[in-house]
């Protein structure tokens, strides 16, 4: 696709040249301007100067490899024996919250319906709870959440 050269077309191309270089023009506009620049040395020169300035910006910001090595020494010294913390999977956190909320609701409804006092656990039951926590570590938040909140009701 080509575009007739005229002062108006040159002005239009130069006005949106930054967007052209940035890849922000739609395909039709970009092709039109490319055709213009292939035939217009002045506008093509303007495009070259913009590309050169981007290259200069990269050069101005460059950090040499020797400096990166020096920076690593500082970082490595601060890292010491640190270890990255492992995050619990988000899905488990959501399950824990939903489960805790549901369990609280059931407890409150049961207490309201029966007028019963807070349940008490036999020592053997406590052992069973610990076993459940070991077997289902992902659900330990649910159990602990219910436990701590239900204690708040008693």
């Amino acid at each position: 696709m080509t575009a007739a050269r005229s002062p108006e077309s040159c002005a239009r191309v130069v006005a949106r040249l930054d967007r052209w270089v940035d890849g922000a023009l739609d395909a039709t506009e970009a092709a039109l301007d490319r055709g213009h620049m292939e035939a217009c040395a002045a506008c093509d020169g303007a495009r070259e100067r913009r590309l050169q300035m981007l290259e200069d910006l990269r050069r101005a910001a460059s950090v040499p490899a020797s400096a990166v090595d020096a920076l690593w020494k500082g970082v490595a010294a601060r890292l010491g024996n640190a270890r990255p913390a492992r995050a619990r999977p988000r899905i488990l956190r959501v399950h824990a919250l939903v489960g805790a909320a549901a369990a609280i609701l059931v407890l409150v409804l049961l207490q309201a319906a029966t007028g019963a006092s807070s349940p008490t656990l036999h020592p053997d039951d406590l052992v069973s709870v610990e076993h459940v926590l070991e077997v289902l570590p992902g659900w330990s938040d649910v159990v602990r959440g219910v436990g701590s909140l239900s204690r708040g009701f008693s």
Binding site: L71, G74, A82, A85
Partner: peptide, 15 residues
């Protein structure tokens, strides 16, 4: 700030 950034990144990588 650069060192602090990498330290935090390392410690928080699991997040």
């Amino acid at each position: 700030v650069f060192q602090e950034t990498w330290l935090r990144a390392f410690e928080g990588l699991g997040t």
